[in-house]
């Protein structure tokens, strides 16, 4: 286990969370390696989003261990410091700053000082502008850089949010249902994008779209009732009797 811990970017052991008697997570344990791409699947209420809430500091676990980067205990930190350690999160519903331009949104997300005073007196640097152009190319919104984020299409907002995550330059990206509401072509693009950034960053993707998960071609973890039901390749997991029973259906 200790080898697991030091090699891991994210390490969860026996994490439990309950809300008013409802057990959202129940002894959840799994490990994500550095630079790994991991897909998480599972029925509604399996605890996927709650797991992300625990990792990003939004929800405190009742018990259990959550270690980031082999040594940082996340259970006692707040969202801002967890983000500063290098964890980026994309919400299920695309959430962008409607009143800001695409460029400014990326600028806000860009790695750098976050304190109120530095924001008050600092201004953008040449390096920042270069990095933004770089990210705009990755998410293919270069032409829309001065448009307001609120005026983008649903798929473009999803991409902008991923772009903001990349600008943060995190060690771990948590991506919640990135292809919901996307066209097939956009879905394919997204799969390509996520596989390309894995390696440099670890990426955990929660998704229901099985063809998208297959396209990611990575290790799959299936959650059910707050704990791990099955883990392995997409083929082995989708062949698992219990996964078929509770999730995929026959």
């Amino acid at each position: 286990m200790s080898a697991d811990l030091t090699d891991s970017i994210l390490y969860l052991d026996a994490v439990s969370v309950s809300f008013d008697g409802f057990r959202a997570l129940h002894d959840l344990s799994f490990v994500v390696g550095r630079g790994e791409l991991r897909a998480i699947i599972g029925p509604n209420g399996a605890g996927k989003t709650t797991m992300m809430d625990v990792v990003t500091g939004k929800t405190r676990p009742d018990k259990g261990i959550v270690i980031f980067d082999g040594s940082i205990d996340l259970t006692t930190r707040d969202e801002a410091s967890i983000a500063a350690f290098g964890i980026g999160r994309k919400f299920q519903k695309p959430t962008v700053f409607d009143g800001q331009t695409v460029e400014d949104s990326l600028l806000l997300a860009l790695e750098g000082p976050r304190s109120a005073f530095s924001a008050l007196f600092g201004w953008r640097s040449r390096v920042a502008v270069e990095q933004i152009i770089d990210k705009l190319a990755i998410i293919r919104l270069g032409d829309l850089r001065s448009k307001l984020a609120g005026s983008l299409s649903h798929g473009q907002k999803q991409w902008l949010e991923i772009g903001m995550l990349l600008a943060q330059n995190p060690k771990l990206l948590l991506v919640d249902e990135p292809v919901a509401g996307m066209t097939d072509a956009e879905t394919e693009e997204t799969a390509r994008l996520l596989t390309s950034i894995a390696g440099e960053h670890a990426v955990v993707v929660v998704e229901h779209d099985m063809s998208f998960v297959r396209a990611l071609g990575c290790k799959v973890t299936c959650l059910h009732e707050g704990s791990v039901l099955a883990e392995g390749t997409i083929d082995s997991v989708s062949a698992n009797e219990r996964v078929i029973d509770v999730y995929l259906g026959r």
């Binding site: 969202e79 801002a80 983000a83 500063a84 919400f91 959430t95 962008v96 700053f97 009143g99 943060q168």
Partner: peptide, 14 residues
């Protein structure tokens, strides 16, 4: 103002 939790998860101490 537009998305408080998004800002928080970007690492800003809102």
């Amino acid at each position: 103002r537009d998305a408080e939790s998004r800002t928080r998860f970007l690492g800003y101490r809102v």
